[in-house]
Protein backbone atom coordinates (compact mmCIF):
# COMPACT_ATOMS: atom_id res chain seq x y z
CA UNK A 1 0.00 0.00 0.00
CA UNK A 2 1.47 3.35 -1.10
CA UNK A 3 1.70 6.31 1.22
CA UNK A 4 3.33 9.67 1.63
CA UNK A 5 4.17 11.35 4.88
CA UNK A 6 5.25 14.93 5.46
CA UNK A 7 6.98 15.97 8.63
CA UNK A 8 8.28 19.27 9.99
CA UNK A 9 6.93 21.29 7.09
CA UNK A 10 7.81 24.96 7.35
CA UNK A 11 6.87 27.76 5.00
CA UNK A 12 6.97 31.51 5.40
CA UNK A 13 6.08 34.32 3.01
CA UNK A 14 8.24 37.20 4.13
CA UNK A 15 7.79 37.52 7.87
CA UNK A 16 4.52 35.65 7.84
CA UNK A 17 4.98 32.03 8.94
CA UNK A 18 2.24 30.07 7.21
CA UNK A 19 3.31 26.56 8.19
CA UNK A 20 5.30 25.83 11.33
CA UNK A 21 6.26 22.19 11.55
CA UNK A 22 3.14 20.68 10.02
CA UNK A 23 2.99 16.91 9.61
CA UNK A 24 0.53 15.01 7.46
CA UNK A 25 0.38 11.48 6.06
CA UNK A 26 -1.75 9.93 3.36
CA UNK A 27 -2.26 6.33 2.39
CA UNK A 28 -3.99 4.73 -0.56
CA UNK A 29 -7.72 5.41 -0.63
CA UNK A 30 -7.64 7.74 2.33
CA UNK A 31 -9.51 11.02 2.29
CA UNK A 32 -8.23 13.77 4.53
CA UNK A 33 -10.37 16.81 5.11
CA UNK A 34 -8.31 19.93 5.67
CA UNK A 35 -10.11 22.78 7.38
CA UNK A 36 -9.03 26.16 8.60
CA UNK A 37 -9.69 29.84 8.18
CA UNK A 38 -8.71 31.86 5.13
CA UNK A 39 -4.96 32.29 5.08
CA UNK A 40 -4.39 29.35 7.44
CA UNK A 41 -2.13 27.71 4.85
CA UNK A 42 -4.41 24.99 3.45
CA UNK A 43 -3.62 25.76 -0.18
CA UNK A 44 0.08 26.24 0.55
CA UNK A 45 0.26 22.85 2.25
CA UNK A 46 -1.53 21.20 -0.66
CA UNK A 47 0.76 22.86 -3.19
CA UNK A 48 3.80 21.71 -1.23
CA UNK A 49 2.46 18.15 -1.19
CA UNK A 50 1.86 18.34 -4.95
CA UNK A 51 5.45 19.42 -5.54
CA UNK A 52 4.43 22.83 -6.89
CA UNK A 53 5.50 25.07 -4.00
CA UNK A 54 8.93 24.85 -2.43
CA UNK A 55 8.75 24.75 1.38
CA UNK A 56 11.39 26.39 3.53
CA UNK A 57 12.01 22.93 4.94
CA UNK A 58 10.15 19.63 4.96
CA UNK A 59 10.92 15.96 5.38
CA UNK A 60 9.05 13.64 3.06
CA UNK A 61 8.69 9.86 3.18
CA UNK A 62 7.28 8.15 0.11
CA UNK A 63 8.12 4.64 1.27
CA UNK A 64 11.89 4.87 1.29
CA UNK A 65 12.46 6.79 4.50
CA UNK A 66 12.46 10.50 5.16
CA UNK A 67 14.28 12.71 2.68
CA UNK A 68 14.19 16.41 1.89
CA UNK A 69 11.28 17.78 -0.13
CA UNK A 70 13.69 18.64 -2.96
CA UNK A 71 14.86 15.04 -3.17
CA UNK A 72 11.25 13.79 -3.34
CA UNK A 73 9.94 16.51 -5.61
CA UNK A 74 9.95 14.41 -8.78
CA UNK A 75 7.98 11.65 -7.06
CA UNK A 76 5.47 14.17 -5.74
CA UNK A 77 5.01 15.78 -9.14
CA UNK A 78 4.64 12.41 -10.82
CA UNK A 79 2.10 11.02 -8.38
CA UNK A 80 0.10 13.99 -7.12
CA UNK A 81 -2.37 16.22 -8.91
CA UNK A 82 -3.37 19.58 -7.47
CA UNK A 83 -6.72 21.08 -8.42
CA UNK A 84 -7.13 24.82 -8.03
CA UNK A 85 -10.10 26.35 -6.29
CA UNK A 86 -11.15 27.65 -9.69
CA UNK A 87 -9.71 25.15 -12.15
CA UNK A 88 -7.84 26.53 -15.13
CA UNK A 89 -9.07 25.47 -18.54
CA UNK A 90 -6.67 25.47 -21.46
CA UNK A 91 -7.66 27.17 -24.68
CA UNK A 92 -9.57 24.49 -26.59
CA UNK A 93 -12.51 22.15 -26.26
CA UNK A 94 -13.38 20.09 -23.18
CA UNK A 95 -12.13 16.97 -24.98
CA UNK A 96 -8.83 18.70 -25.81
CA UNK A 97 -8.47 19.66 -22.16
CA UNK A 98 -8.91 16.04 -21.16
CA UNK A 99 -6.41 14.94 -23.79
CA UNK A 100 -3.78 17.17 -22.19
CA UNK A 101 -3.46 14.82 -19.23
CA UNK A 102 -2.81 11.75 -21.37
CA UNK A 103 0.67 10.49 -22.20
CA UNK A 104 1.70 11.62 -25.67
CA UNK A 105 2.89 8.13 -26.51
CA UNK A 106 -0.65 6.78 -26.75
CA UNK A 107 -2.14 5.97 -30.12
CA UNK A 108 -4.93 8.19 -31.41
CA UNK A 109 -7.49 5.41 -30.95
CA UNK A 110 -6.40 4.83 -27.36
CA UNK A 111 -6.53 8.55 -26.63
CA UNK A 112 -10.03 8.85 -28.01
CA UNK A 113 -11.14 5.81 -26.04
CA UNK A 114 -9.75 7.15 -22.76
CA UNK A 115 -11.24 10.59 -23.35
CA UNK A 116 -14.62 8.99 -24.03
CA UNK A 117 -14.38 6.94 -20.81
CA UNK A 118 -13.51 10.10 -18.84
CA UNK A 119 -16.34 12.08 -20.44
CA UNK A 120 -18.79 9.34 -19.49
CA UNK A 121 -17.34 9.03 -15.98
CA UNK A 122 -17.81 12.75 -15.30
CA UNK A 123 -21.06 13.12 -17.24
CA UNK A 124 -19.55 15.53 -19.74
CA UNK A 125 -20.53 13.87 -23.02
CA UNK A 126 -22.85 16.71 -24.01
CA UNK A 127 -20.20 19.41 -23.71
CA UNK A 128 -17.24 17.47 -25.09
CA UNK A 129 -16.83 19.86 -28.02
CA UNK A 130 -17.63 23.08 -26.10
CA UNK A 131 -14.90 25.68 -25.65
CA UNK A 132 -13.66 24.90 -22.15
CA UNK A 133 -13.15 28.53 -21.12
CA UNK A 134 -16.86 29.26 -21.43
CA UNK A 135 -18.39 26.37 -19.47
CA UNK A 136 -20.04 26.83 -16.06
CA UNK A 137 -18.26 26.56 -12.71
CA UNK A 138 -19.74 23.13 -11.94
CA UNK A 139 -18.83 21.77 -15.37
CA UNK A 140 -15.37 23.26 -15.03
CA UNK A 141 -14.88 21.41 -11.74
CA UNK A 142 -15.97 18.14 -13.31
CA UNK A 143 -13.69 18.67 -16.32
CA UNK A 144 -10.82 19.35 -13.92
CA UNK A 145 -11.59 16.16 -11.99
CA UNK A 146 -11.88 14.08 -15.15
CA UNK A 147 -8.65 15.59 -16.47
CA UNK A 148 -6.87 14.81 -13.23
CA UNK A 149 -8.37 11.32 -13.20
CA UNK A 150 -6.96 10.62 -16.66
CA UNK A 151 -3.52 11.32 -15.26
CA UNK A 152 -3.97 8.29 -12.97
CA UNK A 153 -2.58 9.95 -9.86
CA UNK A 154 -2.13 8.23 -6.51
CA UNK A 155 -2.84 11.42 -4.61
CA UNK A 156 -5.20 14.27 -5.35
CA UNK A 157 -5.10 17.63 -3.65
CA UNK A 158 -8.40 19.47 -4.02
CA UNK A 159 -8.64 23.10 -3.03
CA UNK A 160 -12.22 24.07 -2.14
CA UNK A 161 -13.69 21.83 -4.84
CA UNK A 162 -17.27 22.92 -4.27
CA UNK A 163 -16.73 26.58 -3.57
CA UNK A 164 -19.29 28.84 -5.31
CA UNK A 165 -21.15 25.89 -6.79
CA UNK A 166 -24.91 25.39 -6.62
CA UNK A 167 -26.36 22.40 -4.76
CA UNK A 168 -26.67 20.21 -7.84
CA UNK A 169 -23.09 20.91 -8.94
CA UNK A 170 -21.87 20.23 -5.38
CA UNK A 171 -23.70 16.90 -5.32
CA UNK A 172 -22.23 15.86 -8.67
CA UNK A 173 -18.73 16.87 -7.59
CA UNK A 174 -19.10 14.89 -4.39
CA UNK A 175 -20.23 11.84 -6.35
CA UNK A 176 -17.06 12.04 -8.43
CA UNK A 177 -14.92 12.39 -5.31
CA UNK A 178 -16.58 9.28 -3.85
CA UNK A 179 -15.77 7.47 -7.07
CA UNK A 180 -12.14 8.58 -6.87
CA UNK A 181 -11.92 7.34 -3.32
CA UNK A 182 -13.25 3.87 -4.08
CA UNK A 183 -10.64 3.62 -6.82
CA UNK A 184 -7.96 3.97 -4.17
CA UNK A 185 -6.89 7.54 -4.87
CA UNK A 186 -5.86 9.33 -1.70
CA UNK A 187 -7.28 12.82 -1.39
CA UNK A 188 -6.70 15.93 0.64
CA UNK A 189 -9.78 18.11 0.40
CA UNK A 190 -9.42 21.66 1.67
CA UNK A 191 -12.79 23.15 2.43
CA UNK A 192 -14.72 25.52 4.60
CA UNK A 193 -17.74 23.28 4.25
CA UNK A 194 -16.55 20.39 6.38
CA UNK A 195 -20.03 18.90 6.78
CA UNK A 196 -20.33 18.26 3.10
CA UNK A 197 -17.28 16.00 2.96
CA UNK A 198 -17.78 14.09 6.19
CA UNK A 199 -19.28 11.16 4.27
CA UNK A 200 -16.02 10.56 2.38
CA UNK A 201 -13.44 11.85 4.87
CA UNK A 202 -11.49 9.45 7.09
CA UNK A 203 -9.75 12.16 8.99
CA UNK A 204 -10.20 15.88 9.58
CA UNK A 205 -7.21 18.14 10.16
CA UNK A 206 -7.73 21.68 11.34
CA UNK A 207 -4.97 24.05 10.39
CA UNK A 208 -4.57 27.13 12.56
CA UNK A 209 -1.65 29.49 13.16
CA UNK A 210 0.65 27.37 11.06
CA UNK A 211 0.01 24.13 12.95
CA UNK A 212 -2.40 21.23 12.89
CA UNK A 213 -4.53 22.24 15.83
CA UNK A 214 -7.00 19.38 15.80
CA UNK A 215 -6.88 15.90 14.30
CA UNK A 216 -10.23 14.18 14.23
CA UNK A 217 -11.09 10.71 12.99
CA UNK A 218 -14.24 11.24 10.97
CA UNK A 219 -14.97 7.83 9.56
CA UNK A 220 -16.17 7.69 6.00
CA UNK A 221 -19.33 5.79 5.17
CA UNK A 222 -17.63 4.18 2.19
CA UNK A 223 -16.48 0.60 2.87
CA UNK A 224 -12.77 -0.09 2.24
CA UNK A 225 -13.62 -3.23 0.28
CA UNK A 226 -14.71 -0.99 -2.57
CA UNK A 227 -11.12 -0.13 -3.35
CA UNK A 228 -10.19 -1.31 -6.83
CA UNK A 229 -7.04 -0.48 -8.77
CA UNK A 230 -7.42 2.73 -10.76
CA UNK A 231 -6.04 1.24 -13.94
CA UNK A 232 -8.66 -1.50 -13.98
CA UNK A 233 -11.39 1.08 -13.54
CA UNK A 234 -10.11 3.21 -16.38
CA UNK A 235 -9.93 0.26 -18.71
CA UNK A 236 -13.60 -0.51 -18.09
Amino acid sequence: MSYIAFSETHKAFGRRHILQGVGISLREGQCCLLTGQNGAGKSTLQRIIAGLERPDSAQVDVGDGYHSWKAQRKFLQANCVYLHQQPFMFDGSVAENLAYALPRTLTKAERLHRIQVALTWAGLEDIAECWAKTISGGERQRVALARAWLRSPRYMLLDEPSNNLDEDAKRRTLTLLESLKVQGIAMVVASHEAEQYRCIADEQLDLAQGRISARTGVGSTLPPSNIIPINKFQQA
Binding site: C80, F90, Y100, A101
Partner: peptide, 21 residues
Protein backbone atom coordinates in the same frame (compact mmCIF):
# COMPACT_ATOMS: atom_id res chain seq x y z
CA UNK B 1 -2.84 33.16 -15.67
CA UNK B 2 -0.45 31.72 -13.07
CA UNK B 3 -2.66 28.65 -12.79
CA UNK B 4 -1.85 27.72 -16.40
CA UNK B 5 1.75 26.79 -15.58
CA UNK B 6 0.79 24.90 -12.41
CA UNK B 7 -2.04 23.07 -14.13
CA UNK B 8 0.22 22.01 -16.97
CA UNK B 9 2.93 20.82 -14.59
CA UNK B 10 0.57 18.99 -12.24
CA UNK B 11 -0.94 17.21 -15.24
CA UNK B 12 2.48 15.80 -16.05
CA UNK B 13 3.74 18.27 -18.66
CA UNK B 14 7.51 18.67 -18.88
CA UNK B 15 8.83 22.22 -18.32
CA UNK B 16 9.21 22.61 -22.10
CA UNK B 17 5.67 21.43 -22.81
CA UNK B 18 4.34 23.66 -20.04
CA UNK B 19 6.20 26.61 -21.59
CA UNK B 20 4.71 25.85 -25.01
CA UNK B 21 1.28 25.63 -23.36
Amino acid sequence: DKRAWETARTLGASPLRALLT
